[in-house]
């Protein structure tokens, strides 16, 4: 699918940036005239992915989180959230509900939440190299005179 508009953001993996990341992504997507529900879905999924980078990819350092948002044909949004951190040894296992290598206060639901609020979640990871999460969602409403 062709990208009609896109932004790239690079943010340091500080937890204080979690709110900014999800608001920045949703502000860009607003031009597709999404419903409030759809925006909340996307904000929640982005928050999960960015939190994963902060907690798991860069547990002891502040690294960079690369966010790209693409508006595609057919009112589809693709969000790629990438880090160059620790990487995930077993992606399939990491995506299992309730599985976590985090602390007791982590629920292990990050990927489940992303999958339930987005149409498609693709994860690629290489140990020691980093992880890339791609979130795709087709919005219900049509752009008016885009």
């Amino acid at each position: 699918m062709k990208s009609t508009n896109e932004i790239k953001l690079t943010i340091p993996s500080k937890s204080s940036n979690e709110g900014y990341a999800r608001v920045a992504v949703s502000a860009f997507i607003a031009q597709l005239d999404p419903t409030v529900e759809e925006l909340q879905d996307i904000k929640t999924a982005v928050s999960e992915a960015v939190t994963n980078c902060i907690v798991h990819a860069y547990p002891d350092v502040i690294g960079k989180i690369y966010i790209m948002v693409q508006l595609l044909d057919k009112n589809t949004v693709r969000i790629k959230i990438r880090d160059t951190g620790r990487g995930i040894e077993d992606v399939q296992k990491a995506m299992e509900p309730l599985f976590t290598t985090g602390s007791e206060e982590r629920s292990g639901l990050g990927f489940s939440v992303m999958e339930s609020f987005m149409d498609k979640v693709t994860v690629t990871s290489k140990k020691g190299k980093g992880t890339s999460v791609t979130l795709t969602k087709r919005l219900s409403q049509r752009v008016k005179n885009a």
Partner: peptide, 15 residues
């Protein structure tokens, strides 16, 4: 707004 961090919060307090 709440993401899955809210779940950890509830589970921890429940425990």
């Amino acid at each position: 707004f709440m993401d899955s961090s809210g779940i950890g919060l509830i589970m921890g307090r429940y425990r």
